[in-house]
């Protein structure tokens, strides 16, 4: 059974068509990727799923229940964790406290949340930065804190919005290993928006391609990257 089932969603912003009739689904325990040129509507799609925007139409089912139109906090409590493309850390709090806030979502007490937060920080190789203020971190580190925070909420589905951007290739491989491990050990389902194809090809079992707000292709990674429509939309952009 599909964990997330998106059918025919659309979103307009004052006449601008950001998403049109997009459908996709993710089975339990899978890792899927969403790619497409800049402005294709990937982040809008995330924001619709995560409850930041209400879709103009269509339906979104998560874990068998309709979630379209719920608020972001309700969606998180339903079991979807997300990161932001433009990172939004809590700059005045320590790295640990940033993650504790997330962990409180699934913890009965603050003490338990602290334990869970430390566990996630270790998983993401951030434990030695736990006491640093989030404002003092580098951008790749902040992205990892963002991932840690979302993972700490105890989600069934994790939406990752370009968390590999700006990382060095070795760091990308490190992150890929972390996500693969979490996916294998806990069965966490992951949907990632990513431009770093190295990560996409290494992680995703299935790719959805968006262009101008519409889904133009989907399928296994090796097939999708050979799809002439996909090549055209990327090359078209390059030609500009």
């Amino acid at each position: 059974m599909a964990l997330l089932e998106v059918v025919g969603i659309g979103k307009h912003f004052r006449g601008l068509r950001a998403l049109h009739d997009v459908s996709f689904s993710i089975p339990q325990g899978a890792i899927h990727a969403m790619i497409g040129p800049n402005g294709a509507g990937k982040t809008t799609c995330f924001n619709v799923v995560a409850g930041v925007y209400k879709p103009d139409g269509g339906s979104i089912r998560f874990d068998g229940k309709p979630i379209a139109g719920l608020r972001p906090d309700q969606i998180c409590r339903a079991g979807i964790g997300r990161t932001f493309q433009v990172v939004k850390p809590f700059p005045g709090l320590s790295v640990l406290d940033n993650v504790v806030v997330g962990a409180l979502n699934a913890s009965a007490s603050v003490a338990q949340a602290r334990k869970e937060a430390m566990r996630v920080l270790e998983l993401l190789h951030l434990a030695d930065k736990a006491k640093h203020p989030a404002a003092s971190l580098t951008l790749p580190e902040r992205k990892r804190v963002e991932v840690a925070r979302a993972m700490a909420t105890g989600p069934k589905l994790l939406l990752l919005d370009e968390v590999m951007a700006g990382l060095r290739p070795t760091e990308v491989d490190e992150m890929v290993a972390v996500f693969r491990r979490v996916n294998q050990e806990t069965g966490l389902t992951i949907l990632l928006i990513e431009h770093v194809m190295r990560a996409v090809m290494a992680l995703a079992q299935h790719i959805v391609v968006l262009h101008y707000g519409e889904k133009i292709a989907e399928g296994a990674p090796q097939e999708v990257v050979k799809d002439p429509k996909v090549l055209e939309c990327y090359l078209g952009e390059e030609a500009l």
Binding site: D73, C76, F90, R149, T153
Partner: peptide, 10 residues
Amino acid sequence: ENEDAAAALG
């Protein structure tokens, strides 16, 4: 610190 991020964390 950040309302949007807070909401996203439930």
